[in-house]
Computed example of a mutant assay.
Amino acid sequence: MPYVDVTLTGDAKMTTPAFQIYGEDRPGRWLVTCDHASNRVPPAINGGVLGIAPQDMARHIAWDPGAAGVSIALGAALDSPVICSDFSRLVIDPNRGEDDPTLVMRLYDGTIIPGNRYVDAAEIERRKELLYRPYHAALAQLAARRPDTVIVAIHSFTPCLRGRAPRPWHIGILHSHLDTRLSLPLIARLQQEPDLCVGDNQPYNGHLPGDAIDRHALVPGRHNTLIELRNDLIATPADQVAWAARLAPILTEVLAGLA
């Protein structure tokens, strides 16, 4: 088995090797994005394999487990469109700038990626044209459908990286210092939930120049936030729907409270 099949299901309106869109005609103000929705390796990339074991392709190194299900359910709850990538982050990472040295990873959390070992500039450019740029073009088109679009990016994180301390957060809100309008009130609201350990720019810093939020929200000045959910908490479809149902009214409440 060359990769773990995580083909997305639902009311997908448009399907390409690069992305899937759900609810394109929904009228809501939100745009839900999932940059790491799939661990698919397209056949045009190294014959559909990267040379690592199926169990490694199922890990967080290849995608964000559970994030696609949360995104699809959240978009439905917010009556807003959703865009999900349909290629593994190990092929090329859509949440990195085009010149980022980690755009195509050769080593990730202790796992060597043989299919990327000899990737050169020409191959990276080919992957950009095949997957990276079509995804971002579709995202940009969706974001421009109305002038007050709010982008919420859904990601997931592993409870513990190899050789590192366990991560205690249930949910993290990532944000750039360039725009905290939505994220800081969202953190404050989530901290009112007694059962949640909430991370502020945890487990990662919330800004990388050229990443998806930078490109589609910070540069054009759109309200935005990035939500990281610990992936053991969204392991099943029921978990994913439950988190979406919990987050949708909180997001709506926080947005309504902004000046």
Score class of each variant (00 low, 15 high):
81 P>N: 14
100 D>T: 06
113 I>G: 04
2 P>A: 15
174 L>P: 02
135 Y>P: 02
186 L>N: 03
197 C>G: 00
253 E>M: 12
152 V>W: 02
174 L>K: 08
86 D>M: 08
130 L>S: 07
249 P>Q: 11
197 C>D: 05
54 P>L: 14
95 N>G: 11
249 P>N: 11
225 T>W: 00
22 Y>N: 06
92 I>H: 03
98 E>T: 11
237 P>G: 13
170 H>N: 14
200 D>E: 07
84 C>L: 08
89 R>F: 04
25 D>Y: 01
204 Y>T: 09
30 W>N: 07
133 R>K: 09
182 L>K: 08
35 D>L: 05
213 I>E: 05
102 T>Y: 03
186 L>S: 07
172 G>H: 08
111 T>N: 01
187 I>W: 01
162 R>A: 14
20 Q>S: 08
169 W>A: 14
38 S>D: 07
66 G>Q: 03
127 R>H: 03
195 D>P: 00
104 V>N: 05
179 D>F: 04
230 R>G: 06
168 P>Q: 14
219 V>Y: 00
183 S>N: 04
178 L>S: 10
110 G>P: 00
53 A>N: 06
227 I>M: 07
162 R>V: 09
181 R>T: 09
130 L>F: 01
233 L>V: 08
213 I>P: 00
237 P>A: 15
182 L>N: 04
173 I>R: 08
58 A>F: 01
117 R>K: 12
88 S>L: 04
86 D>Y: 05
233 L>P: 00
40 R>E: 09
123 E>M: 14
139 L>H: 05
58 A>Q: 09
206 G>C: 10
99 D>R: 12
160 C>D: 01
249 P>R: 13
151 I>W: 01
173 I>C: 09
225 T>Q: 01
186 L>W: 00
220 P>D: 10
92 I>W: 02
51 G>C: 10
213 I>F: 01
168 P>K: 14
25 D>L: 12
18 A>G: 04
57 M>W: 00
116 N>L: 08
254 V>P: 01
166 P>H: 10
203 P>V: 13
9 T>I: 10
66 G>S: 05
114 P>M: 13
90 L>A: 13
45 I>W: 01
99 D>T: 15
134 P>L: 15
187 I>N: 03
153 A>P: 01
74 L>Y: 03
98 E>M: 13
157 F>S: 10
131 L>C: 06
88 S>K: 02
131 L>K: 05
58 A>K: 08
163 G>E: 06
5 D>H: 04
127 R>S: 05
215 R>Y: 02
131 L>M: 07
69 G>W: 02
194 P>A: 13
134 P>K: 15
37 A>F: 02
98 E>Q: 11
192 Q>E: 13
90 L>S: 10
94 P>V: 15
87 F>L: 12
106 R>V: 09
74 L>S: 03
152 V>T: 14
39 N>S: 13
231 N>F: 02
208 L>N: 06
115 G>N: 09
91 V>E: 05
255 L>F: 01
181 R>K: 11
240 Q>G: 03
25 D>P: 00
248 A>D: 04
20 Q>K: 11
152 V>Q: 05
41 V>H: 03
7 T>A: 14
99 D>N: 12
10 G>I: 07
135 Y>L: 15
138 A>N: 06
118 Y>R: 12
169 W>F: 07
180 T>R: 15
256 A>R: 12
227 I>V: 15
190 L>H: 03
111 T>F: 00
34 C>P: 02
